[in-house]
Every structure is written in structure tokens, then in C-alpha cells.
Design a protein around this nucleic acid. Structure first.
Lengths: 151, 151
DNA sequence: ATTTGTGCAAATCGTTTGCATCTGA
DNA sequence: TCAGATGCAAACGATTTGCACAAAT
């Protein structure tokens, strides 16, 4: 069923319906501009995904969405602020964003810059440590680093 | 007992004895150059510490150790390669290095760029997830993010 | 009409690299 | 002697910023 894209940005591809995305954004208190709706359609179409700014930018360009890299960064941060995305700080320079905003852990393959959700509640902390005096708990991040079996 | 430093880089301050550091480096297969010994003295003097390149650089400059930032980066990576340090990828742009190379978790205060060991085996994973086919486990990193109680 | 978002290019930050020069074994 | 280290400055990649213009309420 998945034919090649034929310059039809809003059809012929697995994108979320623009109307739905518009509401999503409005409900999150964000102005549904053209680029935000288009990026939202890319991001929230199918199940959960992980993107970097660069990845989303390329995807947008391929989908003929007129958008600049600066706006990609802007949008990713706004979405994250609004709770539509979760920023995953896994390592190194590049920031990853996850459309799965629930509390879960990640696999990360450094060489491939590949980020994956760990399915289910398989990884859990045994005990929560108590925060030192003067500080309060924000969140526990668990990253299980992997490498290819050969490499 | 701790008087002010008086331009006496190798005394009058809690530094590891150079001889000991030299042996440490030699045993790790690293040439004990002047800067490496000096940086090693700073790093391995007292208990466990965490440094960024920038932090170590400033400390070195203050201690009148002639060293360039490039060499700091170089040295930190060589030390890490040799198992004398562990690189902690906690977030964002800056790399942290930990003189505690044992398997343990961290607290991290983003605003202050402050990294702390979580004492003892307080935080442990309940279950290890099995790696997806084709991949193998490298290591699980646990970072408990904190913020100041007021801020 | 006013606020908010966008695009571009320049600026920034942490880090790496190329290369000539020094240094330790 | 000579591989390996150092320092400097330039190069780098990801991200951010300043500002003029455009779009949404």
C-alpha cells in the first residue's frame, strides 16, 4: 500500500490528518502554523518515533515542507515544552526527541546514533535514591548502551 | 591546615605525589609526561572527583601547570582509554569524567552542571533487558536528575 | 493591530584536527 | 633516534541568536 511519494505532501503518505494535528497543537497552547502542522503530521502519524533535528529536517525537505533548520529546532523545543515530545539526552552532541512521552527507558547504539524504546516496564529501578539535601528529584534516566554483535 | 596556595604547584596543596602518579601512568601504558603527571596529580589526589575539560583546564592554570586546552582533551581521553577515568555522558554538550571507574550511578543537576556519584549500591536495575537481536549489551547508565529545591 | 512564528546568516559552545615543534624512552 | 606529546590556530558540528519579514489571532 505504500507507493512512492509523488509531491503530495499531505496525502499519499502516512501522515496524521492535519485537522487532528491542528487540534493537538491548539490544545497544547501552540499556534498551528503551517510548518508546525506539517512537522506534527510527520511526527505523530504512526506509533512512537525518535528524531534528531537533522533527521526531521531532512524528512521535511523530502516531504516538500518548506521549513528552515532554525524552525525545526524551535518547533522541537516548543513541542517538548508543551509535553508533546520528550527530549532524550542520551549522549554526545545530538539531541533526540521521542514522541513517546511516557516514562520509559532506552536502548542506544552509539555508532549508529540509533535510539530505541525499551518495550514494556522491563527495566525498572530497584530503589529510588533519596536526593541530597537541598535538591529534589526530577527524573531518572536509564540508557542501556548496545553495540552490534560483530562490530 | 589548608593554607592559601603560594605558587608552589607541587606542594602546599592536596596533590598526589608525582612519583605515585608516574607509576600509575606507566602501569597504564602511558608516558608520564610533565603535563600528564601534573594533571594526574590534580585528578587522583583526593577521593573521587568529576571534571569537565574546562574545569580541569582552569584548575591546571591556577596551579601554574603549563598546559593547553587541546592537551587537556587529549589527556582526558587517554586516561579514559587506559581505564583511569570513566567518561560520563550525562547530557548536553559537555563531557564529564569521573575518577571513580567502578560501576555506579549519578545525580545530575542540569542548571549547575553538577555531577555527583550516587553513594553505595542504592540504585540498581531490577531486571536487565535483553538486547534486541544482532546487538549486545555494553552498559546501563543511570542518571537521576535533580533540581534545587527553590529554583 | 498585535502578537507570535519564520528564515537567513552570523555567532556561540564544546570539541577535534592539522601541523610544526618538542620530549621521553 | 624517533615514536609519541604538545601547542596553537583553524576547522567542526550541533545548536542558538538577532533581526527583518510574514502569518495567525
Amino acid at each position: 500500500m505504500r507507493r512512492q511519494s509523488k509531491q503530495l505532501p499531505d496525502s499519499d503518505r502516512l501522515l496524521a490528518p492535519s485537522g487532528a494535528v491542528e487540534n493537538l497543537l491548539r490544545d497544547a497552547g501552540l499556534r498551528p502554523t503551517f510548518q508546525r502542522v506539517a512537522l506534527g503530521a510527520i511526527l505523530f502519524a504512526n506509533g512512537d518515533r525518535h528524531v534528531t533535528a537533522e533527521m526531521l529536517y531532512h524528512e521535511a525537505v523530502q516531504t516538500k515542507v518548506p521549513v528552515s533548520l532554525a524552525t525545526i529546532y524551535n518547533t522541537l523545543h516548543k513541542f517538548a515544552e508543551a509535553g508533546l515530545l520528550r527530549q532524550v539526552m542520551v549522549a554526545g552532541s545530538t539531541a533526540h526527541f521521542d514522541t513517546n512521552t511516557s516514562n520509559h527507558s532506552h536502548f542506544f547504539v552509539a555508532k549508529a546514533n540509533l535510539l530505541l524504546d525499551i518495550p514494556g516496564p522491563e527495566v525498572v529501578l530497584d530503589k529510588m535514591p533519596r536526593a541530597p539535601d537541598g535538591y529534589e528529584f526530577v527524573r531518572a534516566d536509564i540508557v542501556v548502551r548496545l553495540k552490534r554483535k560483530d562490530g
